[in-house]
Computed example of a mutant assay.
Amino acid sequence: MSKIKIAYSPCPNDTFVFDAWAHGRVPGAPRLDVTFADIDITNGMAERGEFDVLKVSYAVLPYVLDEYALLPCGGALGRGCGPLVLTREPGADLSDATVAVPGERSTAYLLFRLWAADVLPEGVSRVVVLPFHEIMPAVRDGKVDAGLVIHEARFTYQEYGLNCLADMGDHWESTTGLPIPLGAIIAKRSLGPELLDLLAESARTSVRMAWDDPLASRPYVMEHAQEMDPVVADQHIGLYVNEFTADLGEAGYAAVRGLLTRAAAEGLVPPLGREALSFVGPRRL
Rank of each mutant, 00 (worst) to 15 (best):
L199F: 05
Y68M: 06
V127P: 04
L248H: 10
R88D: 01
N242K: 07
K55D: 11
P131Q: 03
I185K: 03
D52M: 07
R31F: 08
L71S: 03
L215F: 13
R79M: 11
D96F: 14
W115F: 13
P121D: 09
L114A: 06
W172L: 02
P193C: 02
E275A: 15
E223R: 14
L86R: 03
R274T: 12
A265V: 05
S95A: 15
G44Q: 14
E173D: 10
G238I: 06
E89I: 08
N43Q: 10
L191I: 00
Q226T: 08
G28W: 09
L86G: 01
E223C: 10
L84E: 00
G177A: 05
I150E: 05
Y220E: 11
D33G: 04
E243L: 12
R189T: 02
D96K: 11
D93G: 04
R105V: 14
L77M: 12
T245S: 09
A254K: 12
L110W: 05
N43M: 04
S278H: 14
R126E: 15
A108Q: 03
P219G: 09
V53M: 14
A7R: 10
I150L: 09
G258H: 04
V17Q: 00
L61M: 09
D170P: 04
A276S: 13
L195R: 10
I4V: 15
A246E: 15
A233Q: 02
D93N: 13
D145T: 10
A200N: 06
T176H: 03
V17Y: 01
T107W: 07
G147Q: 05
S106M: 06
G161V: 05
L54N: 08
Q158Y: 06
P102G: 09
L130P: 01
H171P: 04
L268Y: 01
T87F: 04
R105H: 15
S202A: 15
A255L: 10
E243P: 04
T245E: 01
L32C: 02
A184T: 01
I186W: 02
P30V: 08
R113M: 11
V101R: 00
V124H: 06
R283S: 12
C164F: 02
V26S: 07
L268P: 00
V144Q: 06
F279S: 06
A29N: 06
V241G: 00
Y8I: 10
D229A: 08
G142P: 00
E243K: 13
P219R: 07
E275C: 10
T176C: 00
E152G: 11
K188S: 00
H171G: 08
D167S: 11
P102V: 05
T205K: 13
A184P: 02
D96G: 12
D213I: 04
D93Q: 04
K188D: 01
D52T: 09
Y109D: 15
G82W: 10
A187M: 02
G103T: 02
F155M: 07
R257P: 05
S125V: 11
K55T: 12
L32A: 05
D38V: 13
